[in-house]
């Protein structure tokens, strides 16, 4: 079918060239178009369209939406229900699913954000990156648009996880939901920036996912998403405090626990909070750590992409 379309078009085009050569003026006037010099407004337009593209692609890709949800749901319901039988003594009557829910809220956006960043590697492989790289816009606009796109897409997954709160005995309090969402957005942005930074250097999809697996899984396990961050063996405690994800999981858990009715003993055991040399790190500072890391990685990503010829 497409062959005939093409042939038809070919004949049409050759015909119209002949007509043009005969001196017949073009039927419709040419629409005059002008590309203005660059300005702040034009860069914002570039950021918006790069962001929008990620959204359009995500909405069209239902399989991906489903696939990235599988892993967090597995952790939450299978691991949560299964291990509950072993650990009911240690959780002071709190359901294990409720305990790991804050961690799952974090990793759900983390996996999706990684996927979004990976699309830069695809774009390079399929050539589309070039279309963006030769456009008369700053590379920084492209990178920022990409990170915002990844964060938005990841947060749409995050919302699905928030909606599950009732199933793990967490109340639907508007303020809680808002705070969780804000924290997810921050984490998603930082993780996308991290992925984009890696994608600037790693050009093959397999290698990219390999590196991601190597970094993401340890980050997840060490972060305290599945266990309280106190009373750990010292080596693990050190690793835990170095893991950036710790500073997303901890405030997330504090938020959720502040809306639960649990005994003081359960709170002390399950939500001890992260400490630095005995000092209790406040939630806002933890969020600040995530934000700062995100901005630093965004800066590196921009520098990397601006350097490429």
């Amino acid at each position: 079918m497409s062959a005939t379309t093409e042939r038809g078009a070919a004949v049409g085009a050759v015909g119209s060239v002949a007509a043009g050569a005969d001196g017949a003026a073009a039927a419709t006037p040419v629409i005059s178009v002008h590309v203005p010099p660059h300005s702040l407004a034009s860069e914002l337009r570039a950021i918006r369209i790069v962001w929008q593209r990620d959204l359009i692609r995500f909405v069209n890709d239902r399989i991906r939406i489903a696939a990235t949800l599988v892993q967090p749901l597995l952790f939450l319901f299978v691991l949560g229900s299964g291990l509950q039988r072993l650990s009911s003594a240690g959780t002071h009557g709190v359901n294990l699913k409720t305990f790991i829910y804050p961690g799952i809220l974090c990793i759900a956006v983390m996996f999706t954000a990684m996927f979004s960043a990976a699309s830069i590697v695809w774009d390079r492989e399929f050539g589309f990156l070039r279309e963006m790289m030769v456009a008369p816009v700053r590379r920084s606009s492209i990178v920022i648009g990409k990170c915002l796109g990844g964060a938005t897409v990841a947060c749409s997954q995050g919302i699905i996880m928030i909606l599950l709160a009732g199933l793990v005995h967490v109340p639907y309090a508007p303020l809680l939901i808002l705070a969780i969402f804000g924290l997810q957005l921050l984490l998603a942005f930082t993780i996308t920036a991290f992925g984009v930074m890696i994608a600037a250097r790693i050009k093959q999809m397999q290698a990219f996912f390999g590196v991601m697996q190597m970094i993401v899984m340890p980050m997840f396990f060490i972060s305290g998403a599945l266990f309280p961050a106190s009373g750990l063996p010292q080596w693990l405690e050190i690793l835990n405090r170095l893991d950036p994800l710790t500073y997303a999981v901890d405030p997330m858990r504090r938020l959720v626990f502040s809306h639960l009715h649990v005994s003081a003993a359960a709170r002390a055991a399950l939500d001890p909070g992260v400490t630095w040399w005995g000092w209790h790190v406040p939630g806002l500072l933890e969020a600040g750590v995530i934000a700062l890391l995100g901005l630093a990685m965004l800066a590196v990503a921009i520098a990397e992409f601006s350097r490429v010829e």
């Binding site: 002008h34 590309v35 034009s42 337009r45 570039a46 593209r53 279309e131 963006m132 008369p136 816009v137």
Partner: peptide, 9 residues
């Protein structure tokens, strides 16, 4: 997308 990147009116 191209039109936006090239900031057409």
């Amino acid at each position: 997308l191209h039109a936006e990147l090239y900031r057409l009116e």
